[in-house]
C-alpha cells in the first residue's frame, strides 16, 4: 500500500530531542553524516553507532520505528554490499566459478552496509522528531544568507511545506481515481509493460486536472489570508537556541573529535 510509507514521518512525543531547535537539529544531522563519512575503521563506526543510539534513547522514539524505515532500503544496502564484495580486492582471496572474493572485499562490504544503515537511522531521527513544517522553516532560516544571491529561500521553503501538506491528499486521490477506473474495468496488473504504462493514463489525467484545480483554489485561499510572500511575515513558533542545544552540539563535537582520534590511532580500513 502506498499509504504505508514511513520515511519522513513525524513521531509524536515530547522528548528533549523533539524540543531542540530545529535549525540545530539540521546542523547536528549534518555533523553526524560527516562523522559517518569520516570513519575509517570499525571502531570509529561503532562510536558513531553509539552516539546515534544515545540520541535515539533521548528522543524516546521506539527502535522499531527505525527498523521500519530501514526495511524499505534493504535492496539498496544489499546492492552496495554485493558490489563492494566483488569489486574490492586485497588480502586473502577465495575464488569459485568466475567470482572472486577477497578478505578486504568482505570487510568493505560489511563496512559499507553499516554506513548506509547509520546514515538512514541518523536522518530518520531528524524527521521523526521534527514536524515537517518546522523543518522547512529551519531550512528557510539556515539558508537565508542565500538571499544575497537573489534566491527566494522563502518561496522554496513554502513550496516544500505545501508539498508535504498535499502528499496525503494526493495519495487519497490516487486511490480514489484508481478505484473508479477499476470499476470501469481498468486493468493495472496484467499485460505488457506498454499496456501497463498506458493503463496509467486514466489515473494520471484526472490526477493532473484535479491537482491544477487544487493549486488554483489554494492560491486564492492563501491570498485571501493576506499572504504576499515572506516579507513582513512573523512566525507563531519561534525557534530558540537554548542550553540543551549547546549541550547536544558539544556532545556531537566531542564525538567527532573522538572519531578523528580513533581514525588516527587504529589506522584506516579503507
Amino acid at each position: 500500500m502506498i499509504s504505508d510509507i514511513t520515511i519522513g514521518q513525524y513521531y509524536k512525543e515530547n522528548s528533549v530531542v523533539h524540543r531542540l531547535d530545529p535549525r540545530n537539529k539540521i546542523i547536528l544531522t549534518v555533523i553526524i553524516i560527516a562523522m559517518i563519512f569520516c570513519c575509517k575503521n570499525f571502531l570509529a563506526l561503532a562510536l558513531v553507532a553509539a552516539v546515534i543510539i544515545v540520541s535515539i534513547l533521548f528522543s524516546k522514539v521506539p527502535m522499531k520505528m527505525f527498523f521500519k524505515s530501514l526495511k524499505s532500503i534493504i535492496p539498496i544496502i544489499l546492492f552496495t554490499a554485493i558490489l563492494n564484495l566483488f569489486y574490492v580486492s586485497g588480502g586473502k582471496e577465495w575464488s569459485f566459478w568466475i567470482l572472486k572474493i577477497s578478505e578486504k572485499g568482505i570487510y568493505t562490504a560489511v563496512f559499507m552496509a553499516f554506513r548506509i544503515i547509520l546514515l538512514i537511522v541518523a536522518s530518520s531521527i531528524l524527521t521523526y522528531t521534527t514536524v515537517p513544517t518546522m523543518l522547512t522553516d529551519a531550512i528557510e532560516k539556515l539558508l537565508s544568507p542565500l538571499k544575497v544571491f537573489k534566491i527566494s529561500v522563502h518561496s522554496l521553503a513554502m513550496m516544500m511545506t505545501l508539498a508535504l501538506r498535499f502528499i496525503p491528499t494526493l495519495i487519497e486521490e490516487i486511490e480514489r481515481i484508481t478505484n473508479a477506473q477499476k470499476a470501469r474495468g481498468a486493468d493495472f496488473e496484467n499485460g505488457s509493460l506498454i499496456d501497463r504504462v498506458k493503463s496509467l493514463i486514466p489515473v494520471l489525467v484526472p490526477l493532473f486536472v484535479s491537482s491544477f484545480k487544487r493549486a488554483y483554489d489554494l492560491a486564492f485561499a492563501m491570498s485571501c489570508r493576506c499572504y504576499t510572500g515572506g516579507d513582513g511575515r512573523t512566525r507563531m513558533k519561534q525557534m530558540k537556541f537554548g542550553i540543551k542545544d549547546i549541550g547536544a552540539l558539544a556532545f556531537y563535537a566531542v564525538s567527532f573529535t573522538a572519531v578523528i582520534l580513533l581514525n588516527k590511532y587504529f589506522g584506516a580500513l579503507i
Partner: peptide
C-alpha cells in the same frame, strides 16, 4: 473478478473526477 466489475457497476462519489 473483472467480469464481476462489468456486471456490478459502481459509480463513486464525485465521479466527474474520473473523466480523462
Amino acid at each position: 473478478i473483472r467480469d464481476v466489475r462489468f456486471k456490478v457497476g459502481i459509480c463513486f462519489q464525485y465521479p466527474e473526477y474520473q473523466l480523462f
